[in-house]
């Protein structure tokens, strides 16, 4: 479950980012705060077995943040370079399923179905 926990931390980092990098454009503020909030909620939810699909929301938020940072003037300001890095990290972790150290559920059963 460690990827889910790392995602929660990345979500908090996104929420803190506007204050750390002192974003100059209001849109950057809103983007990081909202995306961070979404990531915190989805990655906390995806700790639950029932809501494990929520990691796809985390992945989507990561893709959004990455695209938001990537489509920018060159060189991107610190705010957007941070978005690129955090977006890539979120995507990287959100790909990993829950309980990844165990085989997928179907393969854990004594006898796999035909």
């Amino acid at each position: 479950m460690w990827p889910r926990t790392v995602e929660v931390m990345l979500g908090f980092w996104l929420v803190a980012s506007p204050f750390i990098f002192r974003h100059e454009v209001p849109a950057y503020w809103w983007n990081d705060l909202m995306a961070g909030f979404v990531v915190i909620v989805s990655s906390l939810s995806s700790h639950s077995h029932k809501l494990r699909g929520a990691r796809l929301v985390t992945a989507a938020a990561g893709a959004w943040v990455l695209a938001f940072g990537f489509v920018s003037p060159r060189p991107p300001p610190a705010a957007l370079q941070n978005d690129i890095v955090v977006g890539l990290l979120l995507l990287m972790f959100a790909i990993i399923p829950n309980n990844a150290s165990l085989p997928p559920e179907g393969w854990r059963n004594p006898r796999p179905p035909a």
Binding site: L89, M92, F93, I96, A100, S101, P103, P104, W107
Partner: peptide, 21 residues
């Protein structure tokens, strides 16, 4: 980031992931 990917995808998966995942 690519090296970090190597490390985390190296850690993810069971000890039979070549067959199961």
């Amino acid at each position: 980031l690519a090296y970090l990917g190597d490390a985390i995808y190296g850690l993810a998966g069971s000890s039979r992931r070549w067959q199961y995942r």
